[in-house]
Design a protein around this nucleic acid. Structure first.
Lengths: 252, 252
DNA sequence: TGTGATTATCGTCAGAGAGACGACTAAGAT
DNA sequence: ATCTTAGTCGTCTCTCTGACGATAATCACA
């Protein structure tokens, strides 16, 4: 707060953009919406919108998330705004992007939020998005990158940052459970790690690790056969949020 | 970007706030400035100021940093904006704070940046700050917390988030070297860890760990006696930015 | 010129944890 | 019945860490 007349502050537009990730069909996918208006009309983009003058940032992110997906999300009070929905989806602030020319219309600062959600029924086009889809991250960034998919604004960068955050955060936190339904098996959790990291993990070592970490998993009683093979024990997410020692992401 | 007329977007003020940390006298300290004007006149606060309409966020943070401390900082292009100054100071985006009532005057969204700097000569009052000082973090948050020191706005929360980020980031990155001069000894680096974490580390295990991690430290040739005792080898920061396996912060 | 204090550096040992992988279990498919 | 698929338990080895002994090289001071 300095040598400025506060009544003459430079006016900015503030938006939130959402990096919504889920695991579908053994693949990490991001929610994209098709823009219905200029600029970047017809391009795929991250869902998002303007922050209203009377709402907080996480609140705006929750609202946009609900509008685009129907997911409920609420942020907890506390340091960096982080929250869990009743449905298990997780919302946290990612980073803020404010390059002076990132929006050709005006000066826009966008606060990006990261959402990790269990597999959702199917994207619902909401607001002004003429359509929405789950885009496999591999198509956007992997070797088999499809260069036809260019995102609007700087959303490619935002998405890349979100994916990297998710990949590193499941190492040292129990966040991977946010990709799972309320009850899940060790194998399902392992497939989440495999999809997010794009690797194959040893089922025996993985099982030893996650069941041996206190507070990570809570047995919920039942067993299930969802993948064929021997029935597996069902678990709920335990109270632990931080894993110490962490899950190790394979090197190469 | 949605059902709003873009020419009628809700106007926000956007500021940057700086969490500038250094290690002085075996203690983690944060740079505070005394506010010269309302609101919170006379309160200590984080340095910061309005973002100009034609500058980026990291750019504004660098500018404010230079105005308050004379430190040069520049951000590198790349994902989350992160940079290293020639002088060794490190600048990275921390988080963004936008509660509707965080500033009583108007709707302000503040992008906080974290700066890690080597011990600086002495704070220089700049801009509208009537004075500036290095406040030991222990006085603000530790057991011996001095409740007389209440920071303006939500700066207490921002500072706490910045300190926690620094504490966790030196675990798995080589960032602790940002607190050191260009050349330093293993003992000096250890004292940085001890000050930031508020613990005592075993000199022998610490030495083995840091010298055994490839790319962390580069021998620079010379030796020095800065603390009395046997002369120590001098090192520069190596190229490695991520430590794998990480430095482990003692439990209790 | 010792002698002690201080800091740096090297070594040793035991225990925890991870990767590799063998073996067994319990379901469905043919 | 047998094969296939997935889940679960155990074992072995290697790496890394924490605890701690020992030695090295400087300064302060008697």
């Amino acid at each position: 707060m300095s040598r400025y007349d506060p009544s003459a502050f430079p006016p900015f537009a503030v938006t939130v953009d959402l990096v919504v990730l889920t695991v579908r069909d053994h693949e990490l996918c991001a929610l994209l919406v098709k823009r219905g208006e200029a600029p970047f009309q017809g391009y795929w983009a991250l869902p998002g919108g303007f922050v209203r003058l009377d709402e907080g940032l996480a609140e705006a992110a929750s609202r946009e998330l609900a509008e685009e997906t129907g997911l409920r999300a609420q942020s907890l009070p506390g340091s960096l705004p982080v929250g869990q929905t009743p449905a298990g989806a997780h919302l946290e602030q990612l980073a803020t992007y404010g390059h002076p020319q990132r929006d050709p219309r005006m000066r826009v600062v966008s606060v990006a939020y990261l959402v990790l959600a269990p597999d959702l029924p199917s994207p619902r086009a909401g607001g002004d998005a003429s359509s929405a889809r789950w885009a496999p991250v591999r198509e956007l960034f992997g070797e088999e990158r499809n260069d036809g998919v260019l995102l609007a604004f700087d959303h490619e960068q935002i998405l890349a940052d979100g994916v990297e955050r998710a990949r590193s955060k499941i190492e040292y936190s129990s966040l991977a459970t946010a990709f799972c339904p309320p009850e899940f098996t060790v194998g399902e959790l392992r497939r989440v790690y495999e999809a997010v990291w794009g690797v194959v993990l040893d089922p025996r070592n993985f099982h030893r690790k996650v069941t041996g970490t206190p507070g990570f998993l809570l047995p919920s009683g039942g067993t299930t056969t969802r993948q064929g093979g021997r029935p597996a024990q069902l678990f709920k997410a335990g109270g632990a949020t931080v894993l110490n020692p962490p899950m190790l992401r394979p090197e190469a």
